[in-house]
Design a binder for these strands. Structure first.
Lengths: 216, 216
DNA sequence: AGATTCAATTTTGCATTCAATTTTGCAGTT
DNA sequence: AACTGCAAAATTGAATGCAAAATTGAATCT
């Protein structure tokens, strides 16, 4: 799971630089210069490039190094649509199989989420969504959703989610859970759809803010 | 797009070893040994590991190297289901926007596919599917489908697709194209669904053949 | 002036070397 | 015999060096 320490730190630094809009789209990232600037050698730097490529933040070309690939607002919103389609499908599959202990587990996640720190909020949120979909019996689809979620959110560590937004999300979770308990397939799916689209909006706004802007 | 030559070759070699069932699930891949065996140094080997990790064939752990992670039949079939959901959704979005020139382009791809070599068949196949979905105006969703397709198929380079299968696929494409032209949304989607599920079957069979088998 | 060729410079990719971390094997003890 | 502690071996992670490829720029030609 964990990576080489230098590689990890380096990837994070470059990720931050990119999502802060420090580079224009297509800027080549020179190895020696960046390595010196970040105080590491070129080997972990190149490995960091590969991580960032998997995240879609840079593109690697043979003998030509890494160039910045800024995410676009359209990309984020289209991926959010994909997430909607998959999660709503799984939700409708899951509801008929959900039993009382599933409901209790979901309530437990909700209560934890209401008292956790901002740091942990995101992963508790994911745990709730996972638990909603788990009865569908499609663990690999849930794994796939995780990678989709990362692609939507993790590229720009959204600063700190506002208390207002947290409360709103939590309220929506409770609403979805109610419909889920009553096995109202369509209503639950529809509620989940708008929940996902709304939650993606901050990421879209953030990308729009840096996309196409001149680098500092 | 392209990678360092040694890195690329090394990744391909290891990928082949894994998909041929040479290692049991969880086998650690030792750097020095493999590097010597493949005639490269450890730097491109480690970079190859990262590529394979992105493909889901190995898992990397800090200071503990790479361990083999065999795909399971369930994973392949569940990812194929995801592909069905996304493609059918896009298809229904696309049909209302498709025009005469889209139809002609699709016919062109079909005719090319009937005469191309086995080597090129897969990418022509992808081009046809892309063209079906393109009018939906969701390029990033199509990109996402590409990565899904790779995860389903590219991990085991299926040896050579049989002439029988090729003909079957081509026939199904023509059928889908007919319904597409007549703008029969549900029928086209339903035909596409079974087409995708059927086409994933060889990959599933292949994985089932090596999964859980003792390494040679 | 604009395009083209070719050498100088820059930059990447890989091998080698060095350092840090983990695992292994063996005493010694209970 | 099983468990703990510690040192040696094995293994990974990172830095440096060097050859190959690409980029740059100046000189030449049209």
């Amino acid at each position: 799971m964990k990576r080489g320490e230098a590689t990890r730190r380096t990837a994070e630094s470059i990720r931050n630089m990119i999502v802060e809009g420090r580079f224009a789209d297509g800027t080549p990232l020179r190895q020696s210069k960046l390595a010196e600037e970040l105080g590491v050698s070129r080997v972990p730097l190149r490995e960091a490039f590969q991580l960032l490529e998997a995240e879609g933040l840079v593109e690697l070309r043979s003998n030509r190094g890494a160039v910045v690939q800024l995410p676009s607002p359209d990309e984020i919103s289209q991926l959010a649509e994909v997430r909607v389609k998959i999660e709503c499908w799984l939700l409708q599959l899951a509801i008929p199989y959900a039993n009382e202990s599933d409901f209790e587990a979901l309530e437990g996640f909700q209560k934890q989420m209401e008292v956790c720190t901002d740091e942990d909020w995101s992963e508790h949120n994911i745990a709730f969504h996972d638990a909603l979909l788990a009865p569908a019996g499609r663990p690999y689809v849930i794994d796939h959703l995780h990678s989709l979620h990362q692609r939507i959110f993790k590229r720009f560590h959204l600063p700190i989610i506002s208390v207002r937004d947290r409360e709103k999300m939590t309220r929506e979770h409770w609403e979805i859970l109610d419909l889920y308990r009553n096995r109202e397939l369509d209503a639950a799916a529809s509620r989940l759809e708008s929940h996902i689209l709304i939650s993606a909006q901050p990421a879209i706004d953030r990308v729009r803010a840096v996309y196409g802007r001149r680098p500092v």
